[in-house]
Simulated scan of single mutants.
Amino acid sequence: MSDKSLILVYEGEFTQEITKSVLVMAERNMDYTGEESNIKRKVFNVMVECLQNICKHADSVQEKEKEAIFMIGKESDYYIITSGNYIINSDVPYLKSKLEKINTLDKEGLKVLYKDMISKSEISDKGGAGLGFVDIARKSGEKLEFEFEPINDVYSFFSFKTKISRIKDL
């Protein structure tokens, strides 16, 4: 893990309790290393969004009940947050187009989209209004990296990665 600059890796079933534990461990690590509070806040917010996406939106594949992976790494200039979970293939086109749209927007465009989504506040059947990825893009200031790996006729594995700069905003 140290060779790859990984702070924390968790693979398995994700529950609200496990999510809390992952957040506490990552926060302790950032406290221990003396990370600046504004950077900690951004990393923590992005972690919460990624973990909530897994808890709310991961689909179960046979005996693998909501199994997923979450990793956080630290390089000299960035924290890298990576997550992955199974999703139903029929959900891939919608999610892919949503992520691609987010990646076309600049800071101001993301702000407008966020406000627009809040005003419409359409809650999905899984409990989200779709703000998470927009919020991640706003907090990170980076393009979202993602991939969908087909597993079989029913499921794909959704991999998601974002970076948070450790360099102060100018």
Rank of each mutant, 00 (worst) to 15 (best):
M1W: 02
D3W: 06
D3N: 10
D3F: 08
K4G: 03
K4Q: 09
S5V: 04
I7F: 07
L8A: 11
E13Q: 11
Q16S: 15
Q16C: 05
E17W: 02
E17D: 06
V22E: 15
L23W: 06
V24H: 14
A26H: 10
A26T: 03
R28F: 09
R28L: 11
R28K: 13
R28M: 09
N29G: 02
M30T: 00
Y32Q: 11
Y32C: 10
Y32T: 11
E35Q: 12
E36K: 06
I39D: 09
I39M: 10
R41P: 03
R41A: 04
N45Y: 07
V46Q: 11
V46E: 10
V48S: 04
E49I: 02
C50P: 04
C50G: 03
C50L: 15
C50H: 14
K56C: 03
H57K: 12
A58D: 00
A58N: 10
D59G: 05
D59S: 14
S60P: 02
V61P: 01
E63C: 06
K64M: 14
E65I: 13
E65L: 10
K66A: 13
E67C: 11
A68Y: 00
M71V: 06
M71H: 03
G73I: 07
G73H: 05
E75D: 02
S76W: 06
I80E: 13
I80F: 07
I80K: 07
G84D: 05
G84A: 15
N85T: 02
I87R: 08
I88M: 08
S90C: 00
D91F: 12
V92E: 13
P93N: 08
P93G: 13
L95W: 03
K96A: 15
K96P: 06
S97G: 07
S97C: 11
K98H: 10
E100D: 15
I102R: 01
N103W: 06
E108M: 12
G109E: 12
V112C: 05
S119C: 07
K120S: 12
S121P: 09
S121I: 04
I123G: 07
I123R: 14
I123H: 04
K126Y: 01
G127V: 06
G127K: 09
G127I: 01
G128D: 07
G128T: 11
G128P: 08
A129M: 04
G130S: 12
V134R: 02
D135Y: 08
R138F: 06
R138C: 02
K139T: 01
S140R: 05
E142M: 14
E145R: 05
F146T: 00
F146H: 01
P150N: 15
N152Y: 08
D153S: 01
D153L: 09
V154W: 01
S156E: 11
S156V: 04
F157R: 00
S159A: 13
F160P: 05
K161Y: 01
T162K: 07
T162Q: 02
K163F: 02
I164G: 12
S165V: 08
R166Y: 00
K168H: 03
D169Q: 03
D169E: 13
D169A: 07
